[in-house]
Nucleic acid binder design. Structure first.
Length: 819
DNA sequence: TCAGCTCACACTTTTGAATAGC
DNA sequence: AGCTATTCAAAAGTGTGAGCTG
């Protein structure tokens, strides 16, 4: 369940601000939080009355009925997954490779949607690559505030999204907890799962008509600062065009580099010999070196590459040396020598230090994003796609991955129109019949641990048989030092999101306005200038909807069990992890979680976030925006925007103000998994929120189990089929929009879902390792600011305080305008 | 001592401006 | 003058390896 509070200032005029309404999970009715021009009267009106005219029946009925998402480069992902995908993260931000490329279908062509990408931890463990395998070696680092990447085209019509391949290649990962570029912050050596959320935006200011979340198990990855597994390195080099230089035939290949290194060493040796022979003639040598460094032409390089003049005293004839050396074939002028020369010259050069990325701002959307651990994933209606899969066939791991390409649909040809993806060929090529020539068959590393087996897949939703095995990291079972490998198999890369059956309810507000023109290019749309500033605050601790589900069965192993395996993942966790591992998506989540899941009123986890939030003044165009974790703070949060003036508005449009807030840290490295009292809610269709209890009954007992347990394919893959996280309660048609105003006016707080508000009863700051998080969207009163946003920030409800204290997150980056 | 991180490097691709041609 | 195609340079994205850090 996602509860999202967004502040989309989606290029709409301020006049639309009044249209903001807050709909809380517990407030079935529309609860206008930010009435028109603050039309307070509107708040008193029943939600229904406030609901806008429904969209045309044809479109309305179609909406969300069967939203499907297909991972276009699924086979490439699977290749990596079979080895154990590793993603480099750097302080300056690193793109993901493979990138997430998906195709959407089942959307209402006339409605607008916003696509989000977030990445959540899969467990509470930290990993280490040992003995050719990944092993859980301890507790995970304190969880960082989650950030969300909004696809540049957002919002765009369903027709737009469905007409092309949707690429999230622009999303960047960083390990810089103080990142101000808006990149997704992750911890190194941790395991993560990307998720894609499709949120209906009836118009730029009305979000929450429906929401679907998708998880592709094969996209799980481990974050690293340097590749650990050579197989992954090889795959990356062979798949990523930017790394072409490192291929066998590349200029930067090992062979070439070794040759350069050899030449360099030879040169240095000769230089040292000369220096040693002529301690008194260093001046000449130095001047030579200096000359080399100061010149860049070939002649200079050639001279530099030549051996230093011999000292007569050492038996060399300085005057002849140049000629002699010039005749030496072993020292041709080449890049290697040039490199050597430059290296020599660099000795005298003082290296300036790292350039700090100027906090750029290219897009800003403030979204207060509450992620509640919900696992909508747990309650999905399964589509026929999975029906064929025999239940319970999931076997763990060690089974070799079937590499048969036949089982996977050929990768669709990337939409040529989608110029946003710079690496279309790279991702597609792998899928080609040729495959990766250089990539050897993938072998699973021996599984060292024998931990309790996962619950049989019988409980999990049936998945189509897949020939592919997804390796999954296995967190060390608390009781066992050795992790048990878990294989997950996904049937296909296509996932269906089944939305609530009540279309009418889904699109009550759906504006008939279809005039919205979607950007033509995923990454080049001009939306940045119009994107609202959004801040995402996560509430990881929110009562998990999953819990109830999981608790029901043993699966939970699910939750902690170390049963998931990654391809070379060994689970010998020396550190008895007190906290149960978080449930793996694959294991705990059914392949598809649909919105239809009953909605359980959830109480948000405690938010330890300070009640007051400030927007630190930042140099334009940077704005710091801090969003309080609403639920965490007993007091109503306050927002302060500094330096925000009309004059700055234009520039701010591109700015993504870093949010500053304290990120409470939990003293517990591994917070115990908190069962959620909430169940998934159908995102857009439920007319009103219903207690999870009541809704739960409607689901077959097995349903829950399935949801929570990995939708294991009959075969080996442990993983969950791509799961649609399902409905985000907060995204009900009447999804409430929380205007900034709410944050400032305590009087309005009561209208908010109590569960989302700070509560003394709030659970301890513990967060579940992995689950779906409810998003709450709140409209941003500052819609007038056309701030494009790509990476949004969200804060965990309970989480660990950020060591750095207040977080500056919302800043946008300047650099690449398109990405 | 060592695992992990940072940084500069060389190479490649991508992008956009400048230019030429029609 | 306007449009299209080509060329070029800068920016950005890669993995590598040396050096640094705790």
């Amino acid at each position: 369940m996602l509860s999202v509070e967004m502040y989309p200032s989606l290029a709409l005029g301020p006049q639309r601000m009044g249209d903001c309404f807050y709909r809380d999970r517990e407030a079935p009715a529309h609860m206008p939080l930010f009435p028109p021009a603050c039309d307070m009267a509107a708040r008193a009106l029943p939600p229904r009355l406030l609901a806008p005219p429904t969209a045309p029946s044809d479109t309305a009925t179609k909406t969300q009925d069967e939203v499907k998402m297909e991972l276009e480069n699924g086979s490439l992902w699977k290749q990596f997954s079979s080895v154990g995908t590793e993603m480099i993260i750097t302080k300056k931000g690193r793109r993901m490779f493979p990138g997430l490329r998906v195709k959407l279908s089942g959307l209402n062509p006339s409605l607008r949607y916003i696509l989000l990408l977030d990445i959540v931890p899969l467990d509470n463990s930290r990993y280490r690559f040992q003995g050719d395998a990944w092993q859980a070696v301890g507790a995970a680092e304190a969880r960082l505030p989650d950030r969300v990447f909004i696809h540049p085209d957002s919002p765009a019509t369903g027709a737009h999204w469905q007409s092309r391949t949707i690429s999230f290649h622009c999303a960047k990962l960083t390990n810089n907890t103080l990142d101000t570029q808006g990149y997704i912050i992750l911890h190194s050596l941790h395991r993560y799962q990307p998720r894609v959320h499709v949120i209906e935006a009836r118009d730029v200011l009305r979000w929450g008509g429906g929401q679907h979340s998708f998880v592709f198990p094969e996209t799980q990855f481990l974050t690293v600062t340097a590749y650990q597994n050579n197989k992954i390195t090889e795959l990356k080099i062979n798949s990523n065009p930017f790394a072409k230089g490192f291929r066998e035939d590349g200029m930067n290949s090992k062979k070439q580099r070794d040759a350069r290194q050899k030449r360099k060493i030879t040169h240095l040796t000769e230089t040292l010999d000369i220096v040693g022979c002529d301690p008194c003639d260093s001046t000449e040598l130095l001047s030579q070196s200096t000359t080399t460094t100061s010149t860049s032409d070939l002649q200079a390089l050639a001279l530099a590459s030549l051996p230093p003049l011999p000292d007569p005293s050492c038996g060399y004839r300085a005057e002849e040396a140049p000629y002699q050396d010039a005749q030496v074939p072993e020292q041709p002028l080449d890049l290697g020598q040039a490199f050597m020369a430059s290296q020599m010259s660099d000795i005298t050069v003082t290296m300036a230090n790292g350039m700090q990325d100027t906090p750029g701002i290219d897009s800003i959307n403030y979204m207060s994003f509450f992620l509640n651990r919900s696992d909508n994933m747990g309650q999905p209606p399964y589509t026929s796609a999975y029906s064929a899969a025999p239940p319970g066939s999931s076997s763990f791991p060690s089974a070799p991955l079937p590499q048969s390409s036949s089982s996977f649909p050929s990768l669709p040809v990337p939409d040529s129109s989608d110029a946003s993806d710079p690496q279309p060929s790279a991702e597609v090529q792998p899928s080609s019949a040729s495959g990766y020539p250089s990539v050897p068959p993938i072998d699973y590393p021996p599984i060292l641990s024998s931990s309790p087996t996962l619950p049989s897949s019988t409980t999990s939703p049936s998945l189509q048989q897949t020939s592919f095995t997804y390796p999954i990291l296995t967190p060390p079972p608390s009781t066992s030092s050795s992790p048990q490998p878990l294989l997950s198999s996904s049937s296909t890369s296509t996932y269906h999101a089944i939305s609530p059956s009540n279309p009418e309810m889904i699109s009550p507000h759906t504006p008939t306005d279809t005039s919205f023109s979607a950007p033509s290019s995923a990454c080049q749309s001009g939306l940045q200038d119009h994107m609202p500033a959004l801040s995402l605050l996560t509430q990881p601790n929110q009562p998990l909807q999953v819990e109830p589900i999981t608790s029901g069965n043993n699966s939970p192993h699910d939750q902690n069990s170390a049963v998931f395996t990654y391809p070379n993942l060994l689970s010998a966790n020396p550190d008895p992890d007190p906290a149960p591992p978080q449930p793996l998506p694959n294991q705990n989540h059914p392949p598809v979680v649909s919105n239809p899941a009953p909605f359980l009123p959830c109480s948000l986890p405690n938010h330890t976030v300070p009640p007051s939030f400030t927007f630190p003044s930042v140099p334009p165009p940077i704005q710091n925006l801090s969003f309080p974790n609403m639920s965490s703070s007993p007091a109503h949060p306050t927002l302060h925007v500094q330096n925000l003036s009309q004059a700055q508005a234009p520039s701010l449009a591109a700015a993504f103000p870093p949010s500053s807030f304290t990120h409470p840290s939990s003293s517990l490295p591994h917070p115990p998994f908190q069962p959620s009292s909430c169940s998934a809610v159908s995102s857009g269709s439920l007319p009103s929120f219903q207690p999870s209890v009541s809704s739960a009954p409607s689901l077959p007992p097995t349903a829950h189990h399935q949801n929570l347990t990995s939708a294991s394919a009959p075969s080996s893959y442990p993983s969950v089929a791509p799961v649609e996280l399902g409905a985000i309660p907060q995204f009900n048609p009447g999804a409430p929009y929380l205007p900034e105003m709410m944050l400032h006016h305590p009087s309005l707080l009561p209208q908010l879902d109590p569960s989302c508000l700070p509560s003394a009863a709030a659970p301890p700051a513990l967060y579940p390792a992995f689950s779906s998080y409810p998003l709450r969207l709140c409209q941003d009163p500052r819609s007038s600011l056309p701030i494009p946003l790509r990476h949004l920030y969200r804060q965990h409800q309970h989480g660990h305080a950020h060591p750095q204290g207040p977080y500056l997150d919302m800043s946008a980056r300047v650099g690449n305008v398109y990405c």
